[in-house]
C-alpha cells in the first residue's frame, strides 16, 4: 500500500503540492491525472525522496521511505534517465549488481518483448526504446510497489498496450501501482482507482467505477421549448442544446430523470460518463472558479 498524507511542497512562492492525501491499496492501480504543472511530478519526487516535502508523510506498506524500500520499489521517470554510453545489457548488469530481487529471465523476456538488442548503446535507441529500457530497469525486479511517471510516453500504440498489460499483470500479482499519464485512455484501461490533481491539490479521487456512477448525465428531450426547470437549475450544472437539456446529475440521476419526466420530456436518457469527461469537467470547474 502507498499512503500519502497531507503532503505539501512549496518552491518559493509556488505551491507545487498542496495538502495531498491519497491511498493506493495493495494490488491496486491508481492513475494520477492532471494538467501540466498540476504537481504530479513534484508529488512523485516527494514520494521517492528526491525532494523534501515541507509537510506530510509517505508510507510504503506502512513504513516510511528508507534505502531498503527501494528493494521492492520500482520507478519509471517522466523522461528516460539512462547512461547513454552504456549498452542496454550493461543497464541490466547495474540492476543485477544492486537489486537483490532482480529476475534475469524476466528481464531477458522483456527485452525480447520490446525487441531490444542488449548490445546496443542506449543513446542510439529511439525515444520509445529508451522508455522501454527505463521500464525494464524498473520492473525487472518484480517490485511490489511501482511508481510510474508517464510510463508509455514515446511508445508506439502496440508497445503502449504491452506496457499497460504488464502493469495490469503486476497488479494482479499483488503489486501496488501509482502511475501518471496524460493519455486518459491508458488510465481508463489500466487503473481501478483515479486521482485528479489541480493546482497541487487532489480534487477528485476514488474508485473509477464509483466515480463514473457518481457523475452521470441525464439527457432530456422536449417536444417544444425547454420548460422552466425550476430548482434543477440551481442544484446542478445544466446545458441547453436546442430542445434538449443535459443535467450533470451525478449520483441522483434516477431522481433527475423522474423530474424531467414530470416536466413533460418526450425522451430521457441516463448516460455514463467517460473518465475523459470527468477529468475535463474537474479541470474546467477549477478554471471557472
Amino acid at each position: 500500500m502507498i499512503a500519502i498524507s497531507h503532503l505539501s511542497k512549496r518552491y518559493r512562492d509556488v505551491v507545487a503540492v498542496d495538502d495531498m492525501t491519497l491511498e493506493v491499496p495493495t494490488g491496486s492501480v491508481c492513475g494520477l491525472l492532471g494538467r501540466n504543472g498540476a504537481g504530479k511530478t513534484t508529488a512523485f519526487k516527494c514520494l521517492l525522496g528526491f525532494a523534501k516535502p515541507d509537510a506530510g508523510e509517505v508510507r510504503f506498506d506502512g513504513e516510511p521511505l528508507s534505502s531498503p524500500t527501494f528493494a521492492k520499489l520500482g520507478y519509471v521517470p517522466e523522461r528516460p534517465q539512462l547512461y547513454g554510453w552504456l549498452t542496454v545489457g550493461q543497464h541490466l548488469d547495474i540492476v543485477q549488481r544492486t537489486q537483490p530481487r532482480y529476475d534475469d529471465a524476466f528481464a531477458r523476456e522483456l527485452l525480447a518483448t520490446f525487441r531490444l538488442d542488449p548490445r546496443k548503446r542506449t543513446r542510439k535507441l529511439s525515444k520509445g526504446q529508451q522508455a522501454a529500457v527505463s521500464l525494464i530497469v524498473a520492473i525487472s525486479t518484480r517490485p511490489s510497489l511501482l511508481v510510474l511517471d508517464e510510463p508509455a510516453s514515446g511508445l508506439d500504440p502496440v508497445m503502449q498496450r504491452v506496457v499497460l498489460d504488464l502493469l495490469i499483470d503486476s497488479a494482479t500479482s499483488g503489486a501496488t501501482i501509482l502511475l501518471s499519464s496524460h493519455q486518459i485512455g491508458q488510465i481508463d484501461r489500466a487503473a481501478d482507482r483515479v486521482a485528479i490533481m489541480r493546482d497541487g491539490k487532489i480534487v477528485v479521487s476514488g474508485n473509477l467505477d464509483d466515480l463514473r456512477a457518481a457523475s452521470r448525465v441525464v439527457e432530456a428531450t422536449f417536444a417544444g421549448d425547454v420548460p422552466d426547470l425550476g430548482a434543477l437549475e440551481s442544484e446542478m450544472r445544466i446545458e441547453r442544446i436546442g430542445t434538449s437539456v443535459r443535467a450533470h446529475a451525478n449520483s441522483s440521476s434516477d431522481a433527475v430523470a423522474a423530474r424531467f419526466g414530470a416536466l413533460g420530456a418526450v425522451g430521457v436518457r441516463v448516460l455514463d460518463r467517460s473518465l475523459e469527461d470527468i477529468f475535463l469537467d474537474t479541470v474546467d470547474d477549477g478554471e471557472r472558479k
Partner: peptide, 10 residues
C-alpha cells in the same frame, strides 16, 4: 540518472 542511482537499496 538518479532514477537509477537513487533508487537502489543503498
Amino acid at each position: 540518472t538518479i532514477a537509477i542511482s537513487w533508487t537502489r537499496p543503498i
